[in-house]
Computed example of a mutant assay.
Amino acid sequence: MSDIRDERLQVMLGPQELAAVDDFRFKHRMPTRAAAVRELLKLGLTVAAPDAANSMKSSNYGIFSRGPEGHRRGDPETNVGN
C-alpha cells in the first residue's frame, strides 16, 4: 500500500467499538487512533477473503452483536423510542 494519504474516510463508532480501537492502540503503543484504525484495517484485509457464497448483511460487520432484531431506534439498552 502507498504511504500517500489523499483520501479522508469518516467512520462513526459506538462507545464499545471506540474502546476496542483504543485498547488495541494502547496495547500496541500506536501514536494515534488513526494509526490504530489503519493497522486494524490492514490486518482485517489480510485475513478476509471476499467470497460471494458467504456474503453477509451489512449489519453483520459491526464488532458487537446487535441481537436477533438487528438495528433498533432509541436507547440500545432499553429499546426506548421504538
Rank of each mutant, 00 (worst) to 15 (best):
R29Y: 13
A52K: 03
M30Q: 09
E39W: 06
M12I: 12
K57H: 01
F24I: 02
S65A: 05
A48Q: 07
P15C: 11
S2M: 09
T78M: 07
G74E: 12
G70I: 01
S58C: 07
D75R: 13
P50S: 05
E17L: 01
A19F: 02
M56Q: 10
P15Q: 04
A53E: 05
V21H: 00
D3N: 10
R38K: 01
R25P: 00
M56I: 02
A36K: 04
A35N: 10
I63A: 14
L18C: 01
K27F: 03
K27W: 07
F26I: 11
K42L: 07
D3S: 14
S58H: 07
N60V: 05
N79Y: 11
T32P: 06
K42D: 14
A36Q: 09
E69Q: 10
T32I: 04
D75V: 05
L41K: 15
P31V: 00
R38D: 15
L40R: 03
F24M: 02
T32K: 12
G44W: 03
F64G: 11
A20S: 01
E7S: 05
A36C: 01
N54K: 12
D51T: 07
T46E: 15
L43S: 11
F64S: 13
E7R: 02
I63Q: 07
L45Y: 12
I4F: 04
H71Y: 08
D75S: 11
E69Y: 10
P15S: 07
Q10L: 10
E77D: 13
H28F: 09
A34I: 04
S55C: 03
V47Q: 12
R66C: 02
R66Y: 10
G14I: 04
N79R: 12
D3M: 05
M56L: 09
P15R: 07
A19T: 00
R66F: 06
K42P: 03
V11T: 03
T32Y: 10
H28A: 01
E39S: 03
R73I: 04
E7D: 02
Y61G: 06
R38W: 05
M30L: 15
V21G: 03
I63W: 15
N60S: 15
T46W: 06
G44Q: 05
S59N: 01
N82D: 13
T46H: 11
V37Y: 04
L40W: 04
Y61E: 09
R72H: 12
A36V: 08
D6R: 14
G70H: 02
E69T: 10
L18Y: 02
P50R: 11
F26S: 12
F64H: 05
A53M: 09
A52H: 01
A35V: 07
R38I: 09
L41E: 15
N54H: 15
R5M: 08
R5H: 15
A34P: 04
G70F: 00
M12F: 07
S65L: 12
R8W: 02
R66Q: 09
R33V: 15
M12Y: 09
G81Y: 10
F26D: 12
N79P: 06
I4V: 10
S2R: 06
T46G: 08
P68F: 11
F24K: 00
T78N: 09
E39A: 14
Y61S: 06
N60D: 13
E77A: 14
G44Y: 08
A19N: 00
D6I: 05
